[in-house]
């Protein structure tokens, strides 16, 4: 027994160095583009166009001038605030809608719920923008064009199918039916079950879907570009795209200063909630 473990350790050690080498090479490929972006954001705007391009500029070439320009000329914090507002509202609506629907699909007696669930799954499979025409017409009729709720409500609708799908699976697997029964015996209704059993037990899954829903407004471009035509309403992806287009597509120093700034809240968010990212994503994955 001793012998075997020793031998195993030796084999592992032999492969250890190549493992670290390959992983490190891959890591360089992963990080270099982002590093290049960050360094370019510190370069003078004209220097971003010189050939040969410089990956590591000398320290004297670096300055925060581009960032100064962004803060002076772009309402960056307005865009960030808009994006955060959209994100928080999307998350809240999605939690309410998907948790009640998931609980209904998992437990409640509702005629035709299987059909509704089937529809929901097929919506999940369709590309989000595929329904953009009828949805845009709907948004126009509801006076949601140039209205921040025009993105919030539709984002919530787009993320609902997948969130519901994950939550339903989670409830079925992790919330024992006996607990429902015990509430009923104590004279509680399904409201109490939802409030005191389903929500608390499913909270890890709720956290997981909320994290990915939160990041959605930091990503989405097509819909927000059509809805948020007013500058003061724009979210970051739209603002960045507009900024890029209005700067004759060449002022890379400014552009990268703005994109780097836009990355900061997302990175902070990720570092804070790192644990939940992993557990949440994988709870759906392993189940398959």
């Amino acid at each position: 027994m001793m012998n075997r473990t020793n031998k195993k350790n030796r084999i592992v050690d032999k492969m250890m160095v190549p493992r670290y080498i390959i992983l490190s090479l891959g890591l360089i490929l992963m990080i270099t583009p982002m590093l290049y972006m960050f360094l370019s954001s510190l370069k003078d705007n004209d220097k971003t166009f010189i050939y040969p391009p410089v990956l590591f500029p000398s320290l004297s070439e670096l300055s925060l001038k581009n960032y100064q320009y962004i803060f002076d000329n772009v309402t960056f914090f307005k865009y960030l605030g808009n994006t955060l507002f959209v994100a928080i509202m999307t998350v809240l609506i999605a939690i309410v809608v998907s948790s009640t629907l998931a609980y209904s699909f998992a437990r409640l007696q509702i005629p035709g719920k299987k059909i509704v669930f089937g529809f929901l799954i097929s919506v999940m499979l369709l590309p989000g923008l595929a329904m953009i025409i009828p949805q845009f017409e709907l948004a126009a009729r509801m006076k949601l064009i140039n209205n921040i709720w025009g993105v919030i409500l539709f984002y919530a609708a787009w993320v609902t199918p997948f969130s519901t799908f994950l939550l339903k699976g989670y409830i079925e697997d992790n919330v024992p039916k006996e607990m429902d029964e015990s509430i009923f015996i104590d004279g509680g209704s399904i409201f109490s079950v939802y409030r005191y059993i389903v929500l608390p037990i499913a909270s890890p899954a709720v956290a997981a879907i909320s994290i990915s829903n939160f990041l959605y407004p930091f990503e989405e471009l097509g819909w927000s570009q059509q809805i948020l035509k007013l500058d003061e309403l724009r979210t970051l992806p739209v603002a960045i795209t507009m900024f890029f287009q209005s700067h004759s597509r060449t002022d890379w120093g400014y552009v990268f200063a703005m994109t780097t700034l836009a990355m900061i809240p997302v990175i902070l968010f990720y570092l804070l909630l790192q644990k939940y990212f992993i557990t949440g994503m994988t709870s759906g994955a392993i189940k398959g």
């Binding site: 629907l101 209904s104 005629p111 709907l138 539709f154 609708a157």
Partner: peptide, 28 residues
């Protein structure tokens, strides 16, 4: 006969997805 509470939980979410996804899907 189904408890009316079932619908209280189910319907708000259903109406939401009906308006914002099912109806547009049919409309498309």
């Amino acid at each position: 006969k189904i408890d009316w509470r079932n619908y209280v939980i189910f319907l708000p979410g259903f109406i939401f997805i009906f308006i914002f996804t099912f109806y547009p899907m049919a409309k498309m």
